[in-house]
């Protein structure tokens, strides 16, 4: 039974490590702020969730210590990781950081120009 629990823990922790390393390589190599935010928010959130589930299973199955605060941390990271990436990329687009030169289409540009025009009329 201990061997089965160890296999489960090793599986979750190795999956989390793969995602963390992939997000680090993505921040190292991608050409643009928006693609880097894409890499950082998605894959590092999934990686930390997998590693925390591995830690939770280790303390539950090996040490017989059920710790619900780790599950609360997993839930909090699942909610706030993508929200942080979204709000960071949106505010830096409004602040005027240009996308990568190979970008094909830009739907947010028309929307933000329309929004600025409406605000100027209102004020």
């Amino acid at each position: 039974m201990t061997i089965l629990a160890n296999i489960l823990i090793v599986f979750f922790i190795v999956a989390g490590l793969v995602f963390i390393v992939v997000s680090a390589i993505g921040l190292f190599r991608l050409p643009d702020l928006y693609t880097r935010t894409h890499a950082a928010s998605k894959s590092s959130t999934l990686g930390v969730m997998c590693i925390l589930i591995g830690v939770f299973l280790h303390f539950w199955l090996i040490k017989d210590h059920f710790n619900p605060s780790i599950l609360l941390g997993v839930l909090f990271l699942f909610i706030t990781g993508p929200v942080g990436g979204h709000i960071m990329s949106r505010s830096s687009y409004i602040a005027g950081i240009k996308p990568w030169s190979g970008t094909v289409r830009d739907d947010l540009k028309d929307e933000i120009e329309r929004m600025k025009k409406e605000q100027n009329i209102k004020e």
Binding site: I20, S23, G47, L77, M88, S92
Partner: peptide, 25 residues
Amino acid sequence: NPSDRVVALDAIGVALICLVGLFSI
């Protein structure tokens, strides 16, 4: 940009959470 540095700091915080979990094991 400063935005790149903030995104990198966010990712470093996430990796630090992993480090705390592994250290507690």
